[in-house]
Design a protein around this nucleic acid. Sequence first.
RNA 1: GUCCCCAUCGUCCAGAGGCCCAGGAUAUGGCCCUUUCAAGGCUAAGACACGGGUUCGAAUCCCGUUGGGGACGCCA
Length: 541
Amino acid sequence: MCGGRQIEQRQAVIIIVEPMTTVRTRFAPSPTGYLHIGGVRTALFNWLFARRHGGQFLLRIDDTDAQRNVAEALRPILDGFRWLGLDWDEGPEVDGPYAPYYQSQRGARYRAAADQLVATGAAYRDYATTEEIQAERETAQREKRRFLYSRRWMAETDAQAAAFEAEGRQASVRLQMPREGVCAFHDLVRGDVEFEWALEQDHVVQRADGTCLYHLASTVDDHDFAITHVIRAVEHLSNTPRQIFIATALGYPLPAYAHLPYVAAPGSAEKLSKRKLGTYLKHHEFKKAYDHGAGIAEAQGLSITPVSFSPVVVDFYREVGYEPDALVNYLLLLGWSLDDRTETFTREEMIEHFSLERVNRSAASFDLQKLLAFQERRMQALSVEARVARVLPFLERAGLVDAPSTGDQQARTRRVVEAAGDRIKVAGDILGYPEFFQSDDEVAYDQKAFDKRVRKAGVEPLLRRFRDRLGATEPFDADTLDRAMHAFVEAEGIAIGQVIHAVRVSVTGKAVGFGLFEGLAILGRDACVARIDRALGRLAD
RNA sequence: GUCCCCAUCGUCCAGAGGCCCAGGAUAUGGCCCUUUCAAGGCUAAGACACGGGUUCGAAUCCCGUUGGGGACGCCA
């Protein structure tokens, strides 16, 4: 059906309007070596918006300033996107019709734009030194007025430029910003916005060495890549006028803007920062969730420095065994909602319902505990097979099973996963049950639990007699064991609590765990007897 | 300091003048279930920052105050 064709119907005239252009959004990570959780939220909204409108989502690499190994610093970021299922239509590795997507490879485009800006008078060659600018800035500060460059070293003519150069000065390029009027634009999230032009500095867009700065590069790229919607964090809101200025001067059509609120730190309104993990850990709730993850990482032998291992970085969630869908679902609801009750979304549902109109204007603080709650629900919804598949790599990395695991190990894992049920909230929680994968003499005893439950008057003979019963329990399954235990306590004339805890500690080393009889059955008769004997032996020490 | 923004339970959201003595989620307390730990069920407590308007009527609109935050780079 052709665009714009009218279709006559009985009562109504329906006009099929094809969109003028395809929606194109982008996320522009700098290769820093890690993927920030706030960045992911921004990327997600970009992705969702593009998918919602059948458009494209692209990744552009902001490496104008990078001296490091970009490929290496980019890998964790791209891995993060892949893990989250945020696929990009154009960008690194996939390329696309507007390649290259690395800013470091687009310098010629930016320089041409800078030249054009100078040629049309929107920008000028400036010969001031950094020190001279700094001095002006300080003077303004001292006189308590706002700083505005005097344009004293601006070259208006080639002759002036030559004169400055004769002094040994070098030219950078500055925007010649309007000094009156307002820059007004409509923001898809924040509504109508206005900034006074006079408050804008004559921003530098090109350094003396010819390299160009972010705002010029970004504006040129957004145009070159045919970006229709610039969806980014609100800290860029005040940068928008200068980008509008650049785009307008270059004759570019303006994209639509949408400025998202930032993700705030736990229990605070401050922007979430990778560097402030120490502060966040002072929050009890946050620390609890963090420690949970740190324990899992440690069990895998990962190094956990506050730099490499942090809930502010997406890697954390993968290493701890979160479901990407849980993270994405949680992040979606951080600043956006459908209504007053829908909490769980499939990707398809997110795409179907997402809209910029329902994005919040205020910052939302990041709550690890609530994320965990989302994770629990996802995990519970998974089949046993799926949970086993999630959990196996963790056991392998922790050295609790072979890598790759054997069929027997997989079968045992399945039994543990089934028995543990919803106690396994993140895949890494399997590492809380090492005793089912260790040999009998490897099992570590929780000393406090041992003293309380086993090293206790009257327990030893009970344990001995129960061990003997185990020899006669047939078949060695949970139901039979359950009955055996009850028969045992009845015969002994004691409460079940007097022996069951002792058995648990003896066999698993711990005071807590899932159903004891399931546990005994998984371990098998020989292991149970051996472990009780071992505990009995410790009693003698 | 200048400019801009934000403001509903601890936290995340709902609420676009009457449906709200404010609803959901999460976290928290209690009880139940129970061999422990989870999970689950029931239950409790918990917010419209403040002050003025506008209106018959305001969480919702306007103004101010207060509080919080962000941006002010030859960083991105």
